[in-house]
Write a protein that binds this DNA or RNA. Structure first.
Lengths: 245, 245
DNA sequence: GTAGTCAGATTGTCCGGACATACAGATTGA
DNA sequence: TCAATCTGTATGTCCGGACAATCTGACTAC
């Protein structure tokens, strides 16, 4: 069957983007079934009244997302496996909300403190200089799920406790005009100390999932350093990843 | 200072790839310092005797890798933060070897077994049909580090125990002509059972880091399903990730 | 002095074409 | 019958050009 595709040249949205979105929607919706050929680029371009480079750009973006596979001499086809999303830089809050869990946050600490050596190194600021320290308890369905301790350099964002209780940190940062670009993460596990256990309603010595992360904006500045502990019975890290080529 | 760049038109290596590799090397080597402008595309193209689309393709590949940032009206500059690698689909064996640890593998099980419901679902094969089951203990410096249990569909690869002891599973699969494409991972933690503790020389109830993974090739077939447990005192997952744009 | 405006610079998008390269299947030869 | 070769098809690479969108900084007007 013929796929219904069309582009709006009067729209400010780039043509290749319009096309890639329609193709992605068709894949998501099942109109383009896994394994099916996409039809050659030349004809597709002619059918849409676009040039081949534009069509290629649209297809390439979906190849990069892992939705399509190109084979020289064969064609472009939809991958069989259900690709979800390739581990984006998302916040726990958004993840929980998307999963239908009603997330809640209890802000335990929100103040300026002198940076420890560890924090100073991670954020690239001078030791003992002032940094924001935010400690939060993240709940889902009223049950504690994670304990989040974050450090931010000063002057970057105005951290309002009320806002922190109603939304995620990443969303606040994006809203403040910070372009999140990359992050360096480390995921591990360890036994809960008595203090940690108490916070998360676990037993002392119970296994905890830990995550440390330094986030950078597009200028390469470190904009956030966080040390998080999760209850492994309530949370695990799930993600899809692609090979780099 | 002027960066020394040149391309070899007689080489079968694509021109844009030659350029991107030279730029990447210059960034890695420090010749291109973080924050420095790359010079505009037009002039760069003229200097190298290339067309602008070719130069753009080279630059774009580095932008995708997170090494460069483009700004309309400003230019292209090197990001400040030290980007390592964006979480490729690597094997524990390669990771350890790259880190200078001398990895060793002890194959505990290597046989065909009927697929359980869980395995059948992950690999997309019929329940009770034959699948390879491989259990391995991964050691570093003679100390147990991880227990790896993997399942593979039959007919895909010849699993030789000797080879499994001297290299990683992924390397074997790639050598067998399998193109690894994507994987779905889940990382969590739990307390060690007595059996698990014994295998890894830990105490019963000690925290363990767990990872489950289904790997797909470029046709979308599931080619491997694995359940791994790591000693968190010896291993943690470290990776860099980029925002998708 | 401050805000608005304008011009230059640079990347973003798009076009049309050309040739190279690799794959699959049909044809041909032994 | 089987293997080597040819051929068509589709993507991969590359070119040269055109115009649009956006950012920076300087200029101008109030």
């Amino acid at each position: 069957m013929q796929l219904e595709l069309s582009v709006d040249r009067s729209s400010p949205v780039p043509l290749y983007f319009q096309l890639s979105q329609q193709l992605e929607a068709a894949i998501e919706h099942g109109t383009l079934t896994p394994g099916s050929l996409l039809g050659n680029e030349i004809e597709l371009a002619a059918r849409l009244g676009l040039s081949r480079p534009t069509v290629r750009q649209a297809i390439q973006s979906l190849v990069d997302k892992g939705l399509l596979v190109r084979r020289r001499g064969v064609g472009t086809q939809v991958v069989h496996s259900q690709v979800k999303r390739p581990l984006e830089l998302s916040s726990l809050y958004d993840d929980l909300e998307a999963a239908g869990q009603r997330p809640a946050t209890r802000v335990l600490v929100n103040k300026l403190v002198p940076a420890s050596a560890e924090v100073a190194a991670a954020l690239g600021v001078a030791e003992d200089s002032d940094v924001h320290r935010v400690e939060r308890l993240r709940l889902a369905h009223g049950e504690p799920m994670a304990y989040l301790c974050n450090f931010l350099p000063p002057g970057l964002i105005d951290l309002d406790t009320d806002q922190l209780e109603t939304t995620g940190l990443y969303r606040l940062m994006r809203a403040a005009g910070i372009t999140l670009h990359s992050a360096r993460q480390s995921i591990g596990a360890r036994a809960a100390t008595t203090e940690e256990a108490e916070r998360l309603a676990e037993e002392t010595g119970a296994p905890l999932l830990t995550m440390q992360r330094v986030t950078f904006d597009d200028t390469g500045r470190a904009v956030e350093y966080g040390t998080h502990t999760y209850r492994p019975t309530r949370y695990s890290f799930e993600f899809q990843l692609l090979v780099r080529t």
